[in-house]
Amino acid sequence: MAEKSIHISLSAEQIGTLWGIPITNTMLMSFVVFFLLVVLTFFVRRKLALIPGRLQTLVETLFVGILDYITETLGNEKLARQLFPLILTIFLFIFTANIIEFTPGIGSIGWTNAHGEFIPLLRSMNTDLNTTLALTVIVFIVIEVAGVATLGFLRYGKKFVNLSSALGFLVGIIELFSEVARLVSFSVRLFGNIFAGEVMILVIQHFVPIVLPVPIMLFEVFVGFIQAAIFALLTLFFVKIAITEVH
């Protein structure tokens, strides 16, 4: 038993192929998250009334609070209304995936393949860089589009290509680099945090299988919430920076 080492794979395991597209366990997990959120939507939607019930009151309070915060941050109600679905969906998608990552069965139900490697059927969604990178690409595009749509192409471009002075030009280049670096920082931050949590739990489980993993799991759920909030909030803040004119 002790000889059996911990198997850790940075990439998600492939569990099948459909129409030439590889199906990974994290992809399956993202469908599960999708399904859960649709179920939640169904429950909220079913009892939607002018005189709200408990669930509706909770959902409305959260939505209005978040919308107010976004409006306050951006200082533009129209843009806030447009951005609200994206930011909230990012949060809900990541958060739901993170809080269900320790559900029994996820990561433990699976099979051993021909090479003797264990292939779990489901794997925590954000422990795959594909997922986080996909979200990051969407966010990146939204930030650039928001900037161009608000300031106009030329004024937005001025942030990166500034020919007024040598220093301005240099700052523009640095801005351009930091803009692109976001693609990496966004995706790797989320991936790294969640992946590290999973690995830590695996290691602790390997040595102390009972009791000790529980507080760590609790902490990881907290980290999952924080990371979801950070991803959503950073999206908001970078949009704010993008729509703010350069001085």
Binding site: L10, S11, A12, G20, I21, P22, T24, M27, S30, F31, F34, T89, F93, D128, L129, N130, T131, L133, A134, L135, V137, I138
Partner: peptide, 17 residues
């Protein structure tokens, strides 16, 4: 390769989201 990045997976995840 190490991270298992695959443009097909990326596209599927983006469509999913």
């Amino acid at each position: 390769d190490v991270f298992g990045i695959n443009w097909k997976l990326l596209v599927v995840q983006m469509i999913n989201f």
